[in-house]
C-alpha cells in the first residue's frame, strides 16, 4: 500500500514537472511567433504606406493626364471649323472607282468607273458633313475570336458638289470633288 502511494506521489510530481516544462516551451514559441507577427505587421504597414504613396502618385499623374487631354480637346475644338452665319466651309474630297471586268470598250470602262468614283466622293462628303454611324460586334468562343464585324452607315442628301478633276489610270478612276457649305443650306 505504501509503495502504491509512493508511486502515485512520484507520478503526480513528475507530471507537474513535465507540465511546467511544456508551458515554458509554449510561452517561448508564442513569444517568438508574436515577434514574427509584429515584424510581419510592420512590413505590411510599410507596404501599405508604399501602396498609398504609389496610389497618390498615380492619382496625381492621372489628374495631370486628364488635364492635358482636356486642354488638347479644347484646343482641337478651337481649331475645328464651325459653320457660322454668313460664312462658308470648303470641303474637298477624292473619290475612287474601278471599271467592271466585262466592259465593251475603254470609253465604257471610263464612264462606269467615273460614276463609281463620283458616288464614292459623294459618300466622302456625306461622311465629313453629317458623320458616320458605326456598329461593332465581336463573337468570342473558348477565349478565341470567332467573328469580328464592323458596320458603318452614311445617309445624307448632297447637292451642288463640283467635280474639279478626273483622272483615269490603269482601270482606276479618281474624281476630285469640292463643295461649299453655307449656313443657309442647313436652315429649315
Amino acid at each position: 500500500m505504501k509503495s502504491f502511494i509512493l508511486v502515485a506521489i512520484l507520478l503526480s510530481v513528475s507530471t507537474l514537472m513535465g507540465a511546467d516544462k511544456t508551458s515554458t516551451v509554449d510561452i517561448a514559441v508564442i513569444e517568438q511567433t508574436n515577434a514574427e507577427l509584429a515584424k510581419v505587421k510592420a512590413e505590411v504597414a510599410q507596404i501599405k504606406q508604399e501602396n498609398q504613396r504609389v496610389a497618390e502618385e498615380l492619382a496625381v499623374a492621372k489628374a495631370q493626364k486628364e488635364e492635358e487631354i482636356a486642354s488638347k480637346i479644347a484646343s482641337d475644338i478651337a481649331e475645328e471649323e464651325v459653320l457660322e452665319k454668313n460664312k462658308t466651309i470648303h470641303i474637298s474630297v477624292v473619290g475612287q472607282g474601278v471599271a467592271p471586268m466585262n466592259t465593251s470598250s475603254p470609253a465604257q470602262a471610263y464612264a462606269l468607273a467615273k460614276r463609281a468614283a463620283i458616288a464614292d466622293a459623294y459618300r466622302a462628303i456625306a461622311e465629313k458633313v453629317k458623320g458616320v454611324r458605326i456598329d461593332g460586334q465581336d463573337t468570342i468562343k473558348n477565349m478565341m475570336v470567332q467573328r469580328s464585324t464592323v458596320r458603318t452607315y452614311v445617309q445624307a442628301m448632297v447637292r451642288n458638289a463640283d467635280i474639279v478633276e478626273t483622272t483615269f489610270k490603269e482601270g482606276l478612276c479618281e474624281v476630285e470633288m469640292e463643295i461649299l457649305i453655307s449656313h443657309s443650306d442647313f436652315v429649315q
Binding site: 463620283i118 458616288a119 464614292d120 459623294y122 459618300r123 456625306a126 461622311e127 467573328r147 469580328s148 464585324t149 464592323v150 458596320r151 458603318t152 452607315y153 452614311v154 445617309q155 445624307a156 442628301m157 448632297v158 447637292r159 451642288n160 458638289a161
Partner: peptide
Amino acid sequence: IHKLGLHVNHDEKTINMQNSFTT
C-alpha cells in the same frame, strides 16, 4: 441631276478584316 442633289445611302461591312460596301 447630280447638281440638283442625290440621296446618298452607304453601307459598309468589315467581317474578319474583309471589307465590302454598297453605295
